[in-house]
Computed example of a mutant assay.
Amino acid sequence: MATIGSASLSAPVHASAGLAKPLAELRTFWRQFIAKAFNPYRPELHYMRGPGPAWRAKHLGRSR
């Protein structure tokens, strides 16, 4: 599971930057969140779940 965080705790330099910076951080957070939450790649769908038919044909043919 991915974690998204922001560690910016500095005080604003002047009043106009005081509102702009938190909004920019919020925008960045939501962009990262949406990108990770709706990523179509699901690696668990591609994991192998055991030996396949080719492995069985090769190894079971020897034991019999």
Results as ranks from 00 to 15, higher is better:
N39K: 01
K58A: 14
A20W: 00
F29Y: 13
I4C: 03
R27P: 00
A17K: 02
E44D: 14
R27D: 15
A57C: 04
L45F: 06
G50L: 05
L9R: 06
T3I: 14
S63L: 08
R62M: 06
G52I: 05
P40Q: 01
Y47M: 13
I4G: 04
S6P: 01
R42S: 08
S8N: 15
R42C: 03
W55C: 06
A11G: 05
R64C: 04
E44Q: 12
A54G: 13
H14P: 00
A35C: 00
A37P: 00
P53Y: 02
A24F: 02
Q32G: 10
K36S: 07
F38Q: 02
G18C: 03
F29A: 13
P40W: 02
R56S: 15
G50F: 03
K21V: 14
F38T: 08
F33H: 09
G18E: 10
R64W: 05
R31E: 11
K21N: 07
K21H: 05
G52D: 15
H14Y: 08
F33W: 01
G61P: 01
M1K: 04
G61D: 06
H46A: 15
A7E: 11
I34L: 04
A2R: 07
R27H: 09
R49G: 13
E44H: 03
S6G: 14
A7Q: 10
H59G: 03
A2T: 15
R31W: 00
V13K: 07
W55L: 12
A54V: 12
P12V: 07
V13A: 11
S8H: 11
G5A: 14
A37K: 02
P53S: 15
G5D: 14
L9K: 02
P51I: 13
G5S: 14
K21D: 07
M1W: 01
S10I: 10
E25W: 00
K58Y: 03
L60Q: 06
K58R: 04
W55G: 08
I34E: 04
H59C: 09
R62K: 08
R31S: 07
A37W: 00
R56D: 12
R62N: 12
R42Y: 02
E44N: 06
Q32Y: 01
A11I: 14
S8R: 10
G61C: 02
M48Q: 06
R56F: 10
A15Q: 10
T28A: 15
L9G: 15
P22G: 07
G52N: 13
F38Y: 04
Y41V: 09
P53Q: 08
Q32M: 11
L45W: 03
W30R: 07
T28Y: 05
P12S: 14
W30Q: 09
V13H: 01
F33G: 01
F33E: 07
K36M: 01
A37G: 03
H46Q: 09
L19T: 13
S16W: 02
G52S: 05
F29V: 03
R56G: 13
K21C: 02
S6C: 15
Y41D: 07
A54S: 11
S8L: 11
A2S: 14
L9H: 11
L26C: 08
A11L: 13
R42E: 10
N39I: 01
G61Q: 06
F29W: 12
M48G: 14
S63M: 06
G5H: 09
